[in-house]
Design a protein around this nucleic acid. Structure first.
Lengths: 331, 331
DNA sequence: TTGAAAGCGCTAACAG
DNA sequence: CTGTTAGCGCTTTCAA
């Protein structure tokens, strides 16, 4: 293992100068710098992360907290974070917050406290107050993605997302517009906010509350299908459904087909996310650019660590993408 | 920050005894042990990972190399690895191997050499010989998932997968069975192996090679759709298609619908993976249990690190799951 | 079974 | 701008 003194010897300088050169902190003359770089390169020297961390207090590693690492949206965000951080010399370590209380405690009380990272990125993971306290107690920068009451977060305005989707349906002439999403009372909960947007848009259009059909579903294909079955079996069938995610929208469309309804002929459907499946199935959606979200989260973290990246605006962009699953209702 | 000497003082022992107790290495009397544990717990002491790593040479961190972290299959495997390693006190750090040569070099020449991990799990990521050399030069345990010529790997017998899928179709009475998959000549390439299995099964059934229809596709929904369009437009239409993944199978079915063909009436389709969509769309598939693959990879790593986990068998299980996308051909 | 003490490999004052 | 040196917080001989 080639160490810093090997490089120092080869370059004819002290280890301090090698350290200064390689870390970019502190003054080094051009000549010394060149010799150090050459020697390091020739010897294939790479700083030992543990030695460097111990001495400097910096790890060059970012923790990512996520509860659903295998959902397309989060997997995409994680991939983007990692690709963005790498050129800055940061690695990412993944903390998978499962539902198991013992595992969660192990993470919050041990893993996170080992000092392995310089900061945390939290991906729409729900955390208890105690867990949030634990996180805050670490005294490290935290960047959230997805609204959270207690975390400085980058977030899409999910109420606006709900309003936009619903407005699109209203503009097409629909009046009976149902919603499929998660039900929760937490006003910071993303699905709740999308639902509020839907309600607000309907209210703004003067549509009576009795017409507001909502069906709860978890964020899976099957959940969307089940919720839509209920909605479509009702006496008072909606002509359009706003689904809180693209996975749900796929489920909704499947239920419509089962019921012998054509999309968009008999039923219009809008999803949210910009999932690859929404393009594949030609589903109208609100794209929220997960890739860009990951990149911005990374930038926000770099800014917090003072790595000279500009802090991105906290509001994340979204965009209605009209495709073949929405059309005016049948006369 | 509470350190090891705070605990030592509180427990009335030396730091050496605290270290021995907490790491489980070396003899400690029951009494001392109890007092140390109590003190550590009361003070909320957690070992500093960099200090511990520097002194011991062990990081309790595993690197995961993956090129497609956002594909469902790999995202699922990663989630399972992380959940399995956590109870053993291991974190995972993700190395995202993109196509960008500069990024790859940064990973292999710097990131991986910083000594941040005790071993690597490689998820079906293609690596050049130079990169494999680099990895081997690190002299750390490496566990591969998915066949690779130069890595000790856990792997499904993908030729058997191809044979099983094709045999299912043959058993139903199909004779014109096409295949959609990646094309490559690398015999260790997973898609190539599945294709070989398909060819072998057809050959075994005495079906002339001229009837072997193959269409190349990347592993996406859209890729499956495009490949199937070609196959279905041909003069000599297949009555069944074996797709090398469930994503591809979804694309194939979509193309069949476009062409006015019913599935399985006019066309039978088999996929591979056990993707949640295959259940949702009732697609016959070869499930290869990605969750279990992640767990086994983790176990293999723990065994290599001598953490008393039993090394799993290198052959991974798979299982034909017959659903509604396959049926005998029309008479 | 225990404690003293010498590092692990690097960084950051500090003095020059 | 550069070198000397004292740690960073643990682990691990070694001797007792």
């Amino acid at each position: 293992m080639v160490g810093i003194d090997d490089v120092a010897r080869a370059a004819g300088v002290s280890t301090a100068t090698v350290s200064r050169t390689l870390s970019g902190r502190g003054p080094v003359s051009a000549g010394a710098r060149a010799r150090v770089l050459a020697a390091a390169d020739r010897l294939g020297y790479v700083v030992s992360s543990s030695a460097s961390s111990l001495a400097s207090g910096r790890t060059r590693n970012i923790g990512v907290l996520v509860s659903l690492p295998d959902r397309w949206f989060f997997a995409t965000v994680i991939g983007a974070i990692s690709a963005r951080l790498l050129p800055h010399g940061y690695d990412i370590t993944l903390y998978h917050l499962t539902d198991d209380p013992a595992q969660r405690r192990a993470i919050f009380e041990r893993s996170l406290r080992r000092g392995r990272v310089d900061g945390f990125i939290v991906l729409s993971a729900w955390m208890s107050d105690a867990e949030l306290d634990e996180l805050a107690g670490l005294d490290l920068p935290v960047v959230g993605v997805g609204a959270s009451p207690r975390l400085a977060s980058l977030a899409v305005d999910d109420e606006a997302v709900g309003r936009t989707a619903t407005a699109h349906l209203l503009d097409l002439g629909h009046r009976r517009i149902a919603h499929v999403g998660l039900s929760a009372d937490d006003p910071f909960h993303i699905p709740t906010r999308r639902r509020r947007g839907w309600e607000a848009a309907l209210g703004g259009a003067g549509i009576p509350a009795s017409d507001h059909d909502f069906a709860a579903a978890d964020f899976t294909f099957e959940g969307g299908r089940r919720a839509a079955r209920t909605l479509l079996a009702g006496a008072h069938r909606p002509t359009a459904i706003f689904a809180a995610s693209d996975e749900l929208a796929v489920g909704v469309i499947s239920a419509a087909r089962e019921a012998g309804l054509s999309v968009p002929g008999d039923l219009s459907v809008v999803g949210v996310d910009g999932h690859e499946l929404s393009a594949f199935f030609e589903i109208t959606t609100i794209d929220q650019f997960p890739q860009a979200q990951g990149e911005r989260a990374a930038d926000a973290m770099l800014a917090a660590l003072d790595e000279s990246a500009d802090a991105p605006a906290p509001a994340l962009p979204f965009e209605l993408v009209v495709r073949a699953s929405t059309a005016p209702p049948r006369a």
